[in-house]
Design a protein around this nucleic acid. Structure first.
Lengths: 144, 144
DNA sequence: TTTACGATGTTATACAGTAACATGTAGCCT
DNA sequence: AGGCTACATGTTACTGTATAACATCGTAAA
């Protein structure tokens, strides 16, 4: 899927949920799109400032929060960063592996693996926040 | 296990690993112990300042990092906080559930559940950072 | 047109974490 | 004892992350 198609799909996704992918939000999404792996909010802020001359933290955080809420991005708490979510339109159990060294992202389909986890959680009445599990660690090529 | 016994066990645990649970480190551990669930670094800092009059962030962070390294605490990235680890002496795959609303913590033994996860990760050469998986969500009593 | 609401701008500040260097302290070696 | 070494702690200053609170603007419905 090329960039234009992706943005179109993202826009339709938002609208189908009763929200608007405004110009600012799309601009932020495009900036995230530019980066291969994990993106930091203040990196996006710097990019945004280069493009429009002025921007403050809340501007970026509001847009990022919106995109996370729509399922277009995932927050990687361990790294204080954000990553793109492919598959925002087909909800499934994903396992997202983020390398702490190179920032690379790898996605596994972990539906099978996660079912026993969610079973265990369900038994104690616990509802996990996100359907996609984001883990940090070290990828194969960074093992040293 | 009461507090004194716990601290003794913690001390022996550190010493068996060639480290010392110094007075400061124990003091920080006790402060964490005071709180039922998730504790924030700056909360510990404030407590510490009340007890000894002066303390700076590095003092607290160094102690907390040490305790995490020894396995006595876990860091909860999603909440920028720390929680106690019971079972620091019997290494096993734990699943730690943190409620976003009440801050409560629940630990499951998830050895079985996690094996399929680690299998899947191993297949792509990925090494997860921590052996304990920390998830956030909503606990039974906070489901509302 | 007015009203209401959601989005954005703006300022200031709170919260989280670390770099770099100074000082202290305990054990070891000669 | 004296000095060396390694680790622990103190201190200052800073960078990075995130949000509160309020002002403004645009758009769409009443």
């Amino acid at each position: 899927m090329d960039k234009t198609a992706y943005l179109d799909a993202a826009r339709r996704h938002c609208e189908s949920r009763g929200c608007r992918l405004t110009e600012l939000r799309q601009q932020v999404l495009e900036l995230v799109l530019e980066h291969p792996g994990v993106v930091k909010a203040y990196q996006v802020l710097a990019d945004l400032q280069r493009q429009r001359g002025a921007a403050a933290p809340p501007t970026v955080y509001r847009a990022l929060d919106f995109l996370v809420e729509q399922g277009l991005l995932h927050k990687v708490d361990a790294l204080n960063g954000f990553i793109l979510c492919h598959h925002f339109d087909c909800p499934h159990d994903g396992l997202i592996l983020v390398c702490e060294r190179c920032g690379g992202v790898e996605e596994l389909d972990a539906t099978g693996c996660l079912s026993s986890l969610t079973d265990a959680m369900g038994k104690v009445g616990f509802t996990p926040r996100a359907q996609n599990l984001v883990l940090t660690g070290t990828c194969r090529s960074c093992q040293a």
